[in-house]
Simulated scan of single mutants.
Amino acid sequence: MSASAVRVTGAAKRYPGADADVFSRLDLEVAAGETFALVGPSGCGKSTLVRALAGLEPLSDGRIERADDGRHPVLVSQRPALLPWLDVRENVRLGHRFAQNAGRRAAVDVDELLVDFGVAHLADRYPDGLSGGQRQLVAVARAMAVDPDVLLLDEPFAALDPAARETLQDWLRTLVDRRGVAAVIVTHDPDEALHLGHRVGLMLRGAVGLARTWDTGRLDRDALAAAPARAELLSLYETRVRAGRGAARTAEAA
C-alpha cells in the first residue's frame, strides 16, 4: 500500500432488522495526498462509511487497509465539539496530548499549527467567542495536531452560511495540499464535492458499490458551471432524489 493512504474492499453495512444493506460491495482507494469527495443524498450511508474509515463503526462485511506507519485517521464532524472550558490553544493541544497518551506519533507543534491555520490570534479565546467558521478551523487544527494519515470530514461546513462555506472550502483545499495529507470529505453538495475532490464518488442508498466516480483533478469555481462532470453528477443525483421523494409520497398515501 505504498501509494495508498487507505483502501476499502468489498465493504457492506447492514443494520439489525433492516431489509437491505445500506451499501454493499463498495471498493474505494485513496492515494497519499489525494482528496476524495463522497457525495450523495441523505440516508445513503456516506457518514456510516466515513465513520467506518475512522474506526468508529464496524462494517458488516469487507475490509479496510491502511499503510502501517503508526499513524491513524481522524474524523471532523459537522459539529466541532470543542470543549467550552478550554481556550483555542488548549483545545488543539488536547488532540496532541491524546495521541501522545495513546502512544501514537504526534510531532506537530501546536503553536506552529495555529499560525499555519491562521488562527494564532484566536489562541486565547474560548469557543463561545468564536464564529461558526472559526470553530471549524479549530476543529480541523485539533485533528491535524494528531498527524493523521487520513483526514476524514463529515459535512464539516454544512451548518455555515454560503459565504463562510466557500471561504473554508478554499482554505481546506490549500491546507491539505500544503500538508500533503490524504482526505475524504462527505458532502451532500455536488459543487462542494467537485471543488474539493481530486476525485468524486456518487453514493446512492442501496447501491452496489459507488454509483459513479469522476476523476476531475478538482474544479475551480469559475469552471464548475460548464464542467461535463457536474452535469452528469447533477443528473444522476437529482434523478435519484426525485425517485426517493416519489416513493416516500406513495408510502404515505398507502
Rank of each mutant, 00 (worst) to 15 (best):
N101E: 15
H198C: 03
P228N: 00
R7K: 15
V110D: 08
L83D: 11
H121I: 12
G129T: 11
V181M: 08
V92C: 07
R104K: 12
L224T: 00
D147H: 02
D189S: 04
S47E: 13
D116V: 09
G244R: 12
F98H: 10
L94I: 05
L160N: 01
T9D: 07
H96E: 06
L75I: 03
F98L: 15
L175W: 01
L56C: 06
R218P: 00
Q100C: 08
P84D: 07
V22C: 06
A251D: 14
A99M: 09
P190E: 09
L224W: 04
L53W: 12
D215V: 11
S47A: 06
G118M: 09
I185Y: 12
L172I: 05
H121P: 10
N101F: 12
T167L: 11
A18Y: 14
G133E: 00
A107S: 13
S24N: 09
R245F: 06
T48Q: 09
P190G: 04
W171I: 06
V119T: 04
V176Q: 05
C44Y: 09
H195D: 07
P80R: 03
L53C: 10
H188I: 11
S235G: 15
L175T: 15
H188R: 08
D68M: 11
A67F: 15
V92A: 13
A247C: 15
P58M: 05
R230V: 06
D177H: 05
A18C: 09
P80A: 10
V181R: 08
L168T: 03
R249V: 13
Q134I: 09
S2E: 14
P84V: 07
V200I: 08
L160Q: 01
A143R: 05
A226H: 10
E252W: 07
G10D: 02
S60T: 02
G62R: 03
V184S: 10
M203T: 07
L59A: 06
A247D: 13
V30G: 01
D19P: 14
V184G: 08
P162N: 03
R230H: 02
L113H: 02
E192Q: 07
R240V: 15
R66V: 12
L234D: 13
Q134E: 14
V115L: 11
G17N: 02
H96I: 06
L82T: 00
V22M: 05
Y237Q: 10
M203S: 13
D27I: 04
R51L: 05
A243Y: 14
G43A: 13
T48C: 04
P148V: 10
F117C: 12
I185L: 14
V115A: 11
R240W: 15
D189T: 00
A183P: 07
R105G: 05
V22H: 03
G246I: 00
D147C: 12
R221M: 00
T250G: 06
R105S: 12
E166Q: 06
S2F: 13
L153H: 02
A81I: 04
R173D: 04
P16I: 08
